[in-house]
Amino acid sequence: MKKIGYTTGVFDLFHVGHLNVLKRAKLECDYLIVGVTSDELSMSAKNKQPIIPFNERMEIVEHIKFVDEVVPQMNYDKEEAWNNLKFDKMFVGDDWKGTDKWNQIEEDFSKFGVEICYFPYTTHTSSTFLREVLSKI
Rank of each mutant, 00 (worst) to 15 (best):
P53V: 15
G17L: 10
L27F: 11
E69G: 03
N47F: 14
V34C: 07
K23D: 09
E59N: 11
N47H: 14
E56R: 08
G17C: 05
D68P: 01
I33E: 03
V61A: 11
R24A: 11
E56Y: 13
I64A: 07
K78F: 14
E62P: 00
E28C: 03
N47E: 15
L27Y: 14
Q49Y: 15
L32W: 02
Q49E: 15
D68T: 09
E80I: 11
T37V: 10
M58E: 04
S38K: 04
I60R: 01
S38Y: 07
K46P: 00
K23T: 09
D39R: 02
E56A: 11
L41F: 02
A25P: 00
V61H: 08
N75Y: 12
N55Q: 11
S44L: 13
N55E: 14
G35Y: 10
K23E: 11
V71S: 05
L19P: 00
V34T: 09
K48T: 10
V67K: 04
I52E: 05
G35E: 12
L32I: 01
P50D: 15
M58H: 03
N55K: 10
A81R: 03
K78S: 06
I52V: 14
L19S: 05
L32G: 00
L22Q: 03
K46S: 04
D39C: 03
Y76T: 14
P72E: 15
V67G: 01
C29F: 09
I52K: 01
E79L: 15
K26V: 02
M58I: 12
F54I: 08
A25I: 06
V70N: 09
N20S: 10
M74W: 13
I51K: 05
K23M: 12
R24F: 09
E28Y: 05
E79C: 09
F54P: 00
H18T: 04
Y31V: 01
L41M: 07
Y31Q: 01
E80Q: 11
I60Y: 05
C29P: 00
K65P: 00
M58F: 03
C29A: 05
D77V: 08
V67N: 05
T37R: 04
A25S: 08
P50F: 15
H63T: 07
K46T: 02
A25Y: 06
K23S: 06
Y76P: 00
L27A: 11
G35P: 00
M58K: 08
D77T: 06
L27C: 07
V36A: 02
T37W: 05
K78M: 15
L41C: 02
D77F: 10
V34R: 04
P50T: 15
I60T: 01
I33K: 04
V61D: 09
T37A: 05
N75G: 06
E56T: 09
I52G: 01
F54M: 06
D30Y: 09
K46F: 11
V70Y: 07
D68Q: 10
N55T: 07
V34M: 10
C29S: 04
N20L: 12
I51F: 14
K65Q: 07
V67W: 09
G17K: 04
D39S: 06
N20E: 13
F66N: 04
E80F: 14
H18V: 05
V67R: 05
V71M: 09
D30W: 10
N55A: 13
E62Y: 12
I51Y: 14
F66E: 11
K65F: 11
L19F: 13
H18R: 03
G35V: 08
A45Q: 13
